[in-house]
């Protein structure tokens, strides 16, 4: 009952946020210089169409009337949005935006999910190790390494990976998602090729997130290790395993929120990686639609990113009381 009301409140706030951001992106994107629909219309008129013909031709082609007053366009956009209609692409004439976005999203989801999971697991393991051995040289070295990796821009990591593993060693493909020689389907050759192509982008995603996880989890573990209740548990002679579980669960709390948000941000996080590895996910789609001024696709991709972030936040908010009893009843 209480949960339902809480969920409803969060969903309403979420919807309002989606509306605000969708509105902002709609106007921002329209204000970008260069409008391909207008250019098309002008071209049509040059080819001998009357202004009315040209206008209706573009309207058919792009799904909206470019010279309508802005408020009308905006109302039209919102009305279509309410019906889950994102419009049609400009660059790929007439293809619904939802199809384009839906075909790009899985690649990003694969890339980002594995990237987030690996960077979380490896980073947190290193962080715990650094925290426990914090007085040793090893920990100093690991901290330095973590800070360094954290500071290297992701596209540099991507280019280095391509250079070393695809160019010099030539053990992984330079880019793409799968070899064209394989027959699509559930066969070993195709799936193997998918995996091989995903190795470098996933490794890149992992490396890019690793340092942050390591540094955050290190400080979180050190904070918990300094808590009174850990000393108390030691003085009560708790088993090392029990003690480790106490530390782990308490140190996980701050990391949990960050993890949830990074899953929400996954759709926007892979722009550089997808660009370098020529991976046809949402990141590449964003870049492509910016260059081609493909407003509807841009709006659609942004909308997906927003919805994902807001959903992740709502889920994190709802899940948090499950892992921290202190905020359960207050």
């Amino acid at each position: 009952m209480q949960l339902a009301r809480k969920l409803a409140a969060k969903l309403v706030t979420g919807l309002v946020m989606i509306w605000v951001v969708a509105t902002a992106t709609f106007f921002l994107v329209l204000e970008m210089p260069g409008n391909p629909a207008l250019a098309q219309e002008a071209a049509d008129m040059q080819h001998g169409m009357s202004p009315a013909q040209a206008a209706s031709a573009t309207a058919v082609m792009f799904g909206f009337v470019p010279k309508q007053p802005l408020p009308d366009q905006y109302r039209h956009y919102l009305w279509q949005l309410l019906h889950f209609n994102l419009g049609v692409s400009i660059a790929e004439e007439g293809v619904p935006v939802s199809h384009i976005v839906a075909s790009a999203a899985p690649w990003t989801v694969i890339l980002a999910s594995f990237g987030i999971i690996f960077s979380f697991l490896i980073g947190v393991t290193l962080g715990i190790l650094t925290a426990i051995r914090r007085t040793t040289r090893l920990a100093d070295g690991l901290t330095l390494l973590g800070a360094f990796i954290n500071g290297v821009p992701v596209f540099v990591i991507a280019i280095m990976l391509v250079f070393v593993f695809a160019t010099i060693l030539a053990i992984f493909p330079q880019g793409g998602t799968v070899s064209v020689l394989e027959t699509p389907g559930w066969n070993a050759g195709y799936l193997g090729s998918l995996v091989v192509h995903a190795v470098l982008p996933v490794a890149c995603y992992t490396l890019a997130g690793l340092g942050a996880w390591q540094l955050t989890s290190k400080s979180s573990v050190i904070t918990v290790l300094g808590d009174d209740f850990i000393l108390a548990a030691e003085l009560r002679g708790l088993r090392p395993l029990t003690l480790a579980r106490y530390v782990a669960r308490n140190a996980m709390l701050p990391l949990f929120t960050i993890l949830a948000i990074s899953f929400g941000l996954m759709f926007s996080g892979a722009v550089f990686i997808e660009e370098v590895f020529n991976y046809p996910g949402l990141g590449e789609l964003l870049i492509a639609s910016i260059t081609t001024k493909d407003f509807p696709v841009l709006d659609g991709a942004f909308l997906l990113i927003i919805v994902a972030v807001i959903l992740a936040n709502i889920l994190a908010d709802l899940a948090y009381p499950l892992i921290d009893p202190r905020i359960r009843r207050s």
Binding site: F229, A232, Y246, R249
Partner: peptide, 15 residues
């Protein structure tokens, strides 16, 4: 047995 000051949190807050 060692008993901490009451203002110190001597128990795991999550259990």
């Amino acid at each position: 047995g060692y008993v901490f000051q009451a203002s110190q949190n001597s128990l795991n807050p999550l259990k």
